[in-house]
Design a protein around this nucleic acid. Structure first.
Length: 464
RNA sequence: GGCUGGGUGGCAGAGUGGUUAUGCACCGGCCUGCAAAGCCGAGUACGUCGGUUCGAUUCCGGCCCCAGCCUCCA
């Protein structure tokens, strides 16, 4: 039985799929004004994992992940670049897709963009104004009346009064805002010079950040849906506000299960743009295979902080390499060994505990190596089982040679042909029992990142 | 100040009221011309002070420390 930790109830709960129709999942995606970094990648990988695992468990799933393509930062960046907003966002949407593809992240079923859902956004704001949940201020902004929503604070575990007692709470109201209450937040921002705008019943302007997700998620999935995900930092205020808006507009319970992934840290500090301590996916891919990055991300539980240090990806690479070494030359065919599946499933059913699940895969790998010397379970079955179980993790799906001989992201290394030539030369040296020369060639290759292994069936090689 | 979540062996990272997590690294042995990979084996843990218990890393309480949110942020 699958259990998922629900941020709303603050405990693990048995997952209940809808009585009919697919499981509906919405995840807050990327605000596109720059290249994605490892923190974004974690979110993308985690929910890709959730989607894949749900499907592997037999659920039908509709997975929606939005793209925020209008907001303060985007506008600021576009102005800074002297570039139209649409050009900027399209550029980084393309870049995001490239990075996703590289990381083996399957596209969600729907990828709605805020700027093409203005009718839905305006419709929801209209309903909120009509039923008194929101109001038009003198400055042309439309605000949501937080005090009018009794359940406000349920997700963040704070009452409105507690929020106001924060040290800097009074500073929440920016100059130019005309809120009835400091906690109120903008649904619609009146246009300012140099900003893109859309017509609305309240005058030209653009949507606030939170409303797009309420409008697009309910538009794509219905007033109520099953899972809503995003990074930990979105829990408040973004998701709290989504609940308030959506439920005030529809009168229905918005979301069943809220999932929040933990942060990536760098030397125990949050990785973020504002701290400047981030690594973009593109930079990392220059040095490491994408699967190594995925392996690293999945090595810890999705809710735990993931600490990135200099050796993190080295460790991950060595670890992943061992799996592919075990999978090398495994006979084709085979069938799924169910007792391994049970162990794996038990781990994954426990709130997607990939760390535990990967320990099962490590044991399985060990069993494969033992089976080569004749074990109780057939090699082909063990290999097939390992690959099959790793499917929802999107790991170990390539031919072993591809991974082991891949460029590893290294630039300027030896070509396959050059390596082959060196190997032939070394074979001759070995045949001549000229060990000094053979070892010299091996050392020279090693210094260029090529590892040789002499086996019964000849010498094999791989790149580090 | 309020609210979250944490403190596990050299590093990463699960888990459990009494029995080996797992991986990487390191050490010994086997294998190898020597290596590598693999196998076999060893070692190094559970922030701190109390409490409950026959027994706590695991439950309870205090304390210390860390990270995050309370403002844009995956």
């Amino acid at each position: 039985m699958l259990e998922i930790y629900n941020s709303l109830s603050r405990r693990k709960q048995a997952f209940r799929a809808p009585d009919s129709g697919p499981v509906r999942m919405y995840v807050c995606g990327i605000t596109v004004y720059d290249y994605i970094h490892l923190g974004h990648a974690r979110m993308l990988i985690v929910f890709d994992l959730v989607a894949r695992y749900l499907r592997s468990r037999g659920y039908q799933l509709t997975y929606v992940r939005n793209i925020t393509d209008v907001d303060d930062k985007i506008i600021a960046r576009a102005n800074q670049n002297g570039e139209p907003v649409e050009a900027l966002t399209q550029r980084f949407i393309d870049a995001m897709h490239e990075d996703e593809d590289a990381l083996g992240i399957a596209r969600p079923d729907l990828e709605p963009r805020a700027t093409v859902h203005m009718p839905q956004i305006l419709g929801m704001i209209g309903r909120l104004v009509e039923n008194g949940s929101a109001y038009l201020a003198g400055n042309g902004d439309v605000y949501f009346r937080v005090r009018g929503f009794a359940a406000y604070g349920q997700l963040s575990g704070r009452t409105p009064d507690e929020m106001l007692s924060a040290p800097d709470a009074a500073a929440d109201v920016d100059p130019g805002e005309e809120k009835e209450d400091p906690l109120d937040f903008a649904l619609w921002k009146a246009v300012k010079p140099g900003e893109p705008s859309w017509d609305s019943p309240w005058g030209p302007g653009r949507p606030g950040w939170h409303i797009e997700c309420s409008a697009m998620s309910t538009h794509c999935l219905g007033d109520s849906f099953d899972i809503h995900g995003g990074g930990q930092d979105l829990r408040f205020p973004h998701h709290e506000n989504e609940i308030a808006q959506s439920e005030s507009a529809t009168g229905a319970r918005f979301v069943d299960v809220w999932m929040h992934n933990g942060f990536v840290r760098v030397d125990e500090e949050k990785m973020s743009k504002s701290l400047g301590n981030f690594f973009t996916v593109r930079d990392l891919l220059q040095h490491y295979d994408a699967e190594v990055i995925r392996f690293f991300v999945l090595s810890s539980h999705y809710r735990s902080p993931l600490n990135y240090t200099d050796s993190s990806l080295e460790q991950a690479r060595n670890g992943l390499q061992a799996y592919y070494l075990a999978l090398q030359d495994i006979p084709a065919g085979g069938r799924l060994l169910e007792h391994w599946q049970e162990r794996f499933r038990a781990a994954m059913d426990d709130d997607f505990n990939t760390a535990e699940a990967m320990a099962v895969l490590a044991d399985l790998r060990h069993e494969i190596n033992r089976a080569r010397d004749g074990g109780p379970e057939p090699l082909a079955d063990l290999g097939y089982t390992l690959r099959t179980l790793a499917e929802p993790l999107a790991l170990l799906q390539r031919p072993a040679e591809d991974f082991l001989r891949g460029t590893g992201g290294g630039v300027g290394g030896l070509s396959d042909a050059e390596i082959a030539a060196q190997l032939a030369e070394r074979e001759q040296a070995r045949a001549d029992r000229d060990w000094a020369r053979a070892d010299g060639i091996r050392d020279a290759l090693a210094s260029k990142g090529v590892i040789l292994e002499d086996g019964a069936a000849g010498t094999s090689w791989r790149r580090t």
